[in-house]
Structures are given as C-alpha cells and as structure tokens.
Nucleic acid binder design. Structure first.
Lengths: 335, 335
DNA sequence: CTTGGTTTGTACAACGTTGTAAGCAACGAT
DNA sequence: ATCGTTGCTTACAACGTTGTACAAACCAAG
C-alpha cells in the first residue's frame, strides 16, 4: 500500500537515485526519463518518507510553538499568525501546550520531539534565563518578557511604554482614581511587573498619588479572575473611576462584574485592557486596549528563528521590539 | 554537541545495542552495566534521534489535529482537550490550520508531513466523503458533521436534536417570532443544514409557521457575520422576539447588534447560541447555548484513533455521538 | 567436570532517503 | 583519432536507530 523510491524505480526502469532526483527537482534529468518517473510516482501514489529524509538531511521542516494555553485568545491568535508566517518559510508548526508550569516548560524547551523539530518559538511563563542557559543548542526564539537578556533571541513588546500610554489615556479622560487589575508577585509575573511599572509611571506623570488599595492581584489572567478582582475592588469601597486591566480577558471579566454591580461603563468606570483580542471588538461595551502587532510579532519570531538556523551559533542573541498602538473603543473612548 | 548512541557506547565501554537496550528499558542488562551506561548518557546529555527511531520503528508518536481556524474559540478549546487526551496516550499533537478551503484540506488530509504522523484527527469544512475515499490509508478520525457515513471513523454531536431542544426552549419562553442566524447553502454548510433542520422541527412541534424572512444566512460564523445578520434582520422590519444563532460567535455578534439597536436582551429579544465557548459565560448578558461535551469529543476521537492504529484495516468505520446539554443563562433564561 | 539452560552482551543488517564519486554516452575541439 | 566537456545515470555509503541471530559468560544440577 505504501510505496518506496525503490518501487517507483523498478516501475520506471531507472535507478533509485534518479527517482530521488526527479522528486527533488534536480536539473539534469532527461525529459522522457522524468516523464516516465513521474508517471510511476502518480500510479503508485508515492509520497516520500519524511522520517528517512529528515534522518538523512538532519532537518525536519517542522518548528514548534510552545505556549501556556491554547484557549487563551491571545495565544490562539498568535498561533494563527505564527502558522501563517512559518508556512511562508516552508515550515509546518507543531503546537505544544505547556500549561505554564516550570517542569512542563523545561520539558518543552529541551525535549519536544528532539530531532523532530528544527527550532522552537517559545512563550514561557515560568522559566528563567538560568533555566534556559542550561539547555544545549536547540535554536530558540522567546516571546514575551519573562526572560530579559537571556541566552536566546527574543521578541518583545514595550510593555512599560504601552501600559503608560493607555493609563495616560485614562488620565486624559479626567479619571483620577484609576485602578489596576492583574498584579502578580510570583516570578511568573514578569508581564505584570512591567505593566504595573507603566501604570505607576503614568500616574506619576500626572501627579496622581499611587494608592495601593487600587491595585488588585489576579492569580491567572482569565475572565473569572478579572471579574473576581473587580468585585473585590468594588467591595472595599475604594470606588475607582477607571480600571486598567493587564490583559483583555481580565478586562472582559471586569466589565461583567461592573455590569452585575449596576455600574455604567464608561460613564461610572472607564475600562482598558491589553492584547486587542477579537472579543474586545464585540463586547458590550467594546473594549479600549493596547494592540500589540501580533502579526509582526509572529513574523519577527519566525525570521529570527530562520536566521538562527543558518547563522554561526556564536552570533549573539538579538532582541527585537514589536510595535503597538492604542485601540480606543467604547469602554474608554477617545477624547 | 549532539551525541549518538555510539558516543555513549564508547564512553561506557559497551556496544551500541546495549545502550539502546538501556534506553528502551530492556530487562536483561546487568545492574552495574546499566549504571555505567546511564552515567554516560547523563554526562553527554544524550537524547535519541527520533527521526532515526521513527524510521526504524515505523511509528512517530505524533498525531495531527487539523482544524479550519485556530482563533475560533470553539476549535481552540477543542484543541486543548485533544492535546490533553493525546498526552495520556503518549502522543504529541501537531496542529494544522487548514483555513477551511478544499485544496488546503485535501492537502492536510493526505499530506501533513507524511510518515511524520501516525494518524489524523480532522475537522473538515469543505471535503466530502468522496474526497476522502480517494485517500489511501492514513488512519483518520473525523470531527463534525460534514461527512456522513464516510469512509472513516467519526465523532459527532446530534445537531438536529440539540438545535431542536434549544429552539424549543425559546418557544417555552413564549416567543413566537424566532429568527435563525447562520444558514448556509454551500456544501461547506453541513452543520448549518442540520441545525436549521432542528430549528424548523422545533417550530413545527410548536405549531409555529416557518417564516423564511426570519432565517438569515451568514457566510462565515464569526462575530462580525452575526452582527451583520442581526442588523439585517432588524432592518427588514420582521421584528423577531428571539434568535437562535448557529454558533456562539454569531450570537455574540448578534448581542452586539441588538445592543446598538437599543433592544434589550432577553426582554425584547432572547438570544441562544451553540458551542458553549468561554466568552459566552462572561458576555453581557451571558449566553444561553447548546453545550457539546468538548472534552468527551476529544477523548472519543483520540480513542477511536488509537483503536484504528492497532485494528485490522478492514474494521468498518465507527460513528460515535458525543453528548450535549443546554446551558441556559441570561440571554434566554430558564423558565 | 560436563551438560543444559538462562542471562548478558555483541555483530550485522535493515528502515528509506540523499550526497558523493564515478561511469558511460555523445559531442565538439584539438 | 584523441581528448576533454557536458549531460545523464548509476552504485554505494551514510544518517542513527532497533530487531535478529548468535556468542560468551554464568549458574545450577547431574
């Protein structure tokens, strides 16, 4: 049922290598030979055994994308862009879901089908630069901010600047009691720290005192956490007139909690998020957010990986910053 | 940098095969030999070359999941469950995004890294039973309703019954002018046809006349399509008092359009969806929907594939029906 | 000390592919 | 006629692994 080069060769009456040459588009094959071989290939419905080809070539044509969770919209959207960008380089993408735990991430970084993939695009939550330094040379591009100045190529968004801009926008709407949702003290919370820094910087710019009671932690960044954090803020009586949520799913949860509390958005409380996921364009109200250029992030990551695969392994790691913009919608409208 | 069995063997002073035996947990290796080999493996940080192993064994330990689009929440959630279920069988999942076009789907079905995967879980939009019949024996499990009684194992939800139940629920709320959003006349619209059949059956059960003007087509099933279809329904003056959307993203779009039109949900118009995606639990209002058991779907698919891989290839294809239930929330609350 | 069975280790050949080197025509230039 | 050149094809070896067959070492019992 499943045929090999040898079968095709016998049928076409040529050597195995000639068939291989036809399959790989080698130039110097006479037209009639090529035709005979192609006919044989078609008749037998031959397709090459990639394991064998990989073994021989040392390349697989597969790269892996490792993300914490697939059903977080940000990662799903990112995955789509990575798949598209990788296809342009002739790569298939194997998507790995790490769950975000340190052990699984370590395994993903070092292990995913070793020798089955040419390289890895990795969005770590738990791993540190030290963890990664211990890994031997799997070509790797990191996404996100967890590992600063680590041993690998890196694509980031300027989290501090972006958070500062969106917070400044809330200030510009005349809000003064601006809450933040999503702070984290764990080592996994690198994004949280940077976004919090942007938030405090914007408050300082505006001469607004930092009020610890307005900063709500969120263990994860799911909708349920955002709703819980918002409820908590409301219950403590601090009465914010705006909230900056560290990502969009938190913000969607916050919108829900505000709705349940009978508060109007943006009239009573303005809400802003981060990520610009599709949901936020249709939520009620639509969501103002920081829009990182996800397509660019994916494209840069794939290109860094492509370079890394051909470059001298001693080439120092590069860090590229992807652009972002503010997407201002109903929940914190433009002035 | 990257070591082979041979390197480990030399270092441990044994033959290549003995190392292989240790790696594969073969029983009859003396304890001290095993220890020496394991030490050598650790020192060299050896890891097997899977391409070579696959070539030798004819199995890769990788299965593929092919879905139309990754950033459709339903597929993202499904993907997560498939990855989890596959992990329990020791499989890695390669996720392929087909885009839903017939050509790409054919390629996915026949081609994805041929010999790189042991089997395929496939959620086709465009392919027909005939298309699939032409493919030689890639072990395959189909998801969804596109290919009835096709040549492959199949996991489905009872779309007609589910659509009938949720429509009946709208009837039970006293609604009489119940619209449907998401109909499709293309061959890709198999789900649409089944859900429409359930809708009309429920209307008939209740003695409500079918009104063609209440049925709005949607070219794709994204939020934007749902919003556009809802706007269209409102603009024609047919004034529905309920809408059954053929999936949740359509419903979220419809909620948005109703909000923009100043109509209250569920007071003026009740809304129901299909899929039970995470978004619908936090939307404003929260969404009543059909909840297919996605975890079960994933688990059944993986098990069917596992059986298919060990079974006699002549075993007739099986079709399993995954359960569903109604998740009734604010947009069309329980009575 | 042989016999016979079990345990432990080895050598070799495959899996299907492609790179290398080389062979064999046919050709024009010497 | 002889010598490269060029075009086309082939045989062979390798990629790193594991299954098969077998040899060596061990052990217990006769």
């Amino acid at each position: 049922m499943r045929h090999r080069l040898k079968d095709v060769a016998e049928r076409a009456g040529v050597s195995v290598k000639t068939v291989s040459n036809v399959v790989n588009g080698y130039q110097h094959v006479r037209a009639d030979t090529r035709a005979r071989v192609e006919a044989a290939i078609a008749e037998l419905n031959y397709r090459p055994n990639l394991s064998a080809r990989n073994l021989r070539k040392g390349r697989t044509g597969v790269i892996a994308l490792a993300v914490p969770e697939l059903d977080i919209p940000y990662f799903a959207e990112l995955a789509r862009h990575v798949v598209t960008a990788a296809a342009e380089h002739g790569w298939t993408v194997l998507i790995d879901q790490t769950g975000g735990g340190p052990e699984q991430e370590r395994k993903a970084a070092s292990g995913i089908g070793d020798h089955m993939i040419d390289g890895l695009i990795f969005s770590p939550l738990a791993l540190t630069a030290d963890d990664l330094a211990g890994l031997d040379g799997m070509p790797m591009v990191l996404l996100g901010e967890r590992v600063d100045h680590g041993p690998a190529d890196h694509v980031v968004v300027d989290n501090v600047a972006a958070a500062r801009e969106i917070t400044a926008h809330l200030v510009g709407l005349g809000r003064r009691r601006i809450a933040a949702i999503g702070s984290q003290r764990t080592p996994e919370g690198a994004s949280a720290r940077l976004r919090l820094a942007g938030y405090t910087a914007a408050l300082a710019d505006a001469g607004i005192a930092y009020d610890e009671r307005l900063v709500a932690p969120a263990p994860a960044w799911h909708r349920a956490d955002g709703a819980a954090a918002m409820r908590h803020l409301l219950s403590t009586g601090v009465r914010p007139d705006a909230v900056f949520c560290f990502n969009d799913t938190l913000a969607l949860g916050a919108l829900r909690a505000l709705h349940e509390a009978g508060l109007r958005v943006p009239d009573d409380v303005a809400v802003a998020g981060f990520d610009d996921i599709e949901d936020g364009r249709f939520s009620i109200p639509t969501l103002s957010t920081v829009a990182p250029d996800k397509e660019r992030i994916a494209r840069l990551a794939v290109e860094l990986l492509a370079n890394r695969l051909t470059a001298d392994p001693e080439t120092p790691p590069r860090e590229l910053v992807a652009p972002h913009r503010l997407a201002l919608r109903e929940s914190a409208p433009p002035r």
